[in-house]
């Protein structure tokens, strides 16, 4: 086969993308496309895994057996989702444990929402409703992402996550309809999680350095601001329905655009949390690092045993 020059390869690649033909692991792809995907998918995987911690906090304190089982199943799903996503990065030639080490060293990022603490049972509701709600909104378009393994992992993740948001909303609904203490607990959780949840869609389009290229490659299908607007428009009526108040004095329906106008997001806070100054950054990464370190001897033992068994079989 004649060697194609790089421009021709890139042209053919972009043509496939433009025609909505999925890219599969061994297909030729520009190095920057590969690197962008590895960065995005591993960040996504890290978010799932770090995301287990704030909710994991409340498993042993869940108020009844049903809620306990649901929460366990949900946090477990997040481990599963992390795994599906790490699998997708491995198809791009990234090594899972190396990507995880990048998380532990602070080189790799994860969704900054998980650096906020979960302080009450109502936070399990707020996280499910708002954080999973925002995540689903981000993820549904990713099911059509140009990279096949990522898109397929997202299909699976989205299917499984639909229960996550519902269980969160159910918790909030129950609290909002409960005693004064319960209602206050729910409102307090909404107050603390509302703005960080809106930050989950990333910086405003004007400041987002990756958006344009990612959209051209169809890794991303909507801009950050589009998705954020969608989130606000969908969530406000849900809050009203259960009698909770969105903590935004500037929130107002705008008939002309057919959506809500909302207040200024504190991007200074956002960038600080991303940089490591959030309330729980240190604890979250430390917990993950410790889990890996404490598991070292276990993984080593399993390998040693497997090697011994292979030797026995061979002899």
């Amino acid at each position: 086969m004649a060697e194609l020059n790089i421009q021709e390869l890139e042209r053919r690649f972009q043509e496939k993308i433009d025609n909505d033909i999925r890219i599969e692991p061994n297909d030729w792809m520009p190095e920057r496309y590969r690197q962008t995907l590895i960065r995005q998918i591993s960040q996504h995987a890290h978010s799932e895994i770090v995301g287990m911690l704030p909710e994991g906090n409340w498993i042993t304190r869940a108020p009844n057996l049903r809620r306990k089982a649901v929460l366990l199943a949900k946090v477990q799903d997040e481990a599963g989702h992390g795994l599906y996503l790490y699998s997708a990065t491995e198809t791009l030639g990234a090594d899972r444990e190396e990507t995880i080490d990048d998380l532990h060293s602070g080189k790799a990022k994860y969704s900054s929402i998980f650096n906020y603490p979960t302080l009450s049972w109502a936070d399990m509701g707020a996280v499910g409703w708002l954080v999973d709600g925002a995540a689903i909104m981000n993820q549904v378009p990713l099911c059509r992402c140009s990279y096949g393994p990522y898109a397929r992992a997202m299909v699976r993740v989205c299917k499984e996550e639909s229960f996550h948001q519902r269980q969160g909303f159910e918790i909030m609904m129950k609290l909002a309809a409960g005693s004064e203490e319960q209602k206050a607990m729910a409102q307090d959780a909404l107050n603390r999680f509302w703005w960080p949840a809106l930050m989950m869609f990333g910086p405003p389009d004007a400041d987002s350095k990756h958006t344009a290229q990612s959209m051209a490659w169809k890794i991303k299908r909507n801009t950050n601001d589009e998705l954020r607007q969608q989130m606000v428009d969908i969530t406000v009526p849900q809050a009203e329905m259960i009698g909770l108040t969105i903590p935004d004095p500037d929130l107002k329906w705008n008939e002309e655009k057919g959506g809500y106008d909302f207040g200024e997001i504190d991007w200074d806070e956002f960038w600080n949390v991303v940089k490591g100054n959030g309330p729980c950054n240190k604890e979250r990464v430390e917990a993950r690092r410790k889990a890996k370190e404490n598991g070292e001897w276990v993984r080593e033992a399993a390998n040693a045993y497997a090697a011994k068994q292979k030797m026995k079989k061979a002899s």
Partner: peptide, 27 residues
């Protein structure tokens, strides 16, 4: 369930949580 999120490797984290879920269901 105290292990959930802290297992020695992701796959085993999931496995232990499955066992915890069975036990909570039995209880």
């Amino acid at each position: 369930s105290e292990w959930c999120g802290h297992g020695p490797i992701l796959e085993e984290d999931i496995a232990m949580t499955n066992i915890a879920l069975d036990l909570v269901g039995q209880a």
